[in-house]
């Protein structure tokens, strides 16, 4: 491929469709915390997008960042609450009640087990801990909305009631204990801390919070299992005590939330390298995206196939295209075609 060609190919970058900035990119751009390539992609997008450009200008003004974080967490929660169909909520409620019962039975069982035999109990506890994630997670997940629901009106009336009833501080509270509200999570610690988000974030992640919980009673016998137990079910703790502590989950959550957007961004970045003819860099970047099981992972594999084909590594290219075909997604046909032509 001649230099001239790759240079020309760069011209198509002008019309690369690039997504709007995500929730973290706005502050990161303003604070100069983007990598060069990411920054360039952002600016390419800003050329077109009045929405993002205006958002940045507005955030540039002093003291807006905190309000931005709080309100965007609130609005996300609001959207989720208002789209949830009623039937699903009811199903959820029933499930919560059931799993709560199961939970208390479990605890009762362990109280008995501990009284019965010290050493044997400890052994069983280890067993229990090993099995815990499987048993606890389904229980922990749906329990959380219970707490959210207690502060939020049902979805039907949500639009109207929330508008008039909910005060500003209520939104983050509702947002806090939700397990699935990934993005809404960061401001959660704000309520108890009543401080700026920056302060809460900067604080070292605390160990599992020690809140009063029925789990404590049996746990006096063995300390380590207790801590692990609480760590495993922070959501349950929150739901029971109704006081969301600045627990471990919030700092962990943003990672999963942005993973999607970040992957897409990384994909675009890899594409830039590919378009510029730097196949090796592009390949190494696409490879990192193959762990993504969604559309980005599929596209990355497809592009890997293209890169390998360009490098005349037909065996590898074939393998990639085959994987794409196996994923049975939107690129299946294109991959099959590429395979046929190889």
């Amino acid at each position: 491929m001649s230099d001239n060609f790759t240079h020309n190919e760069k011209l198509l970058k002008i019309f690369a469709g690039i997504r709007c900035l995500n929730k973290d990119q706005l502050p990161r751009y303003l604070e100069g915390r983007l990598t060069d390539i990411e920054k360039h992609l952002v600016e390419q997008h800003l050329v077109d997008c009045d929405l993002c450009y205006e958002a940045l200008q507005s955030l540039q003004k002093e003291g807006q960042m905190e309000q931005y974080q709080t309100l965007s967490a609130g609005i996300q929660q609001y959207i989720r609450d208002s789209i949830k169909p009623v039937s699903q909520l009811q199903k959820m409620e029933r499930y919560i009640r059931k799993s709560k019962k199961r939970e208390s039975l479990l605890i009762y069982f362990w109280v008995v087990a501990f009284i019965a035999g010290g050493g044997a109990g400890l052994y069983l506890m280890q067993e229990y801990n090993r099995n815990k994630p499987v048993m606890a997670r389904p229980a922990a997940l749906p329990i959380v909305p219970a707490a959210a629901m207690s502060t939020t009106p049902p979805p039907d009336s949500a639009r109207h009631q929330e508008a008039s009833l909910a005060d500003k501080s209520e939104i983050p509270v509702a947002a806090a204990p939700r397990k699935d509200t990934v993005k809404a999570a960061p401001p959660a610690p704000q309520k108890p801390a009543a401080d700026s988000i920056v302060v809460t974030r900067a604080a070292p992640t605390p160990p599992a919070p020690k809140t009063e919980d029925s789990v404590k009673k049996p746990a006096t016998a063995a300390n380590t299992p207790k801590e692990e137990k609480e760590k495993d079910t922070p959501a349950t703790t929150v739901a029971k005590t109704q006081a969301p502590p600045p627990a471990t989950p919030p700092p962990a959550k943003p990672a999963t939330s942005t993973a999607m957007d970040t992957d897409e961004f990384l994909y675009k970045a890899a594409m830039v390298y590919q378009q510029q003819g730097d196949l090796n860099e592009a390949i190494s970047r696409y490879k990192r995206l193959t762990s993504n099981t969604g559309r980005v992972g599929e596209l990355a594999r497809y592009q890997l196939g293209i890169c390998y084909r360009e490098k005349k590594q037909n065996g590898r290219a074939r393998r990639m295209f085959k994987e794409v075909v196996r994923m049975d997604g939107s690129m299946k046909q294109a991959a099959q075609q590429a395979l046929d032509n190889l």
Partner: peptide
Amino acid sequence: SHLLVAVCLPSFRNNPGTNPQTLFP
């Protein structure tokens, strides 16, 4: 939604009567 929030921020500052609880819904 975060972009919507950011773009609306100046309106809270410039017009104290604007309330996020009514504006966003």
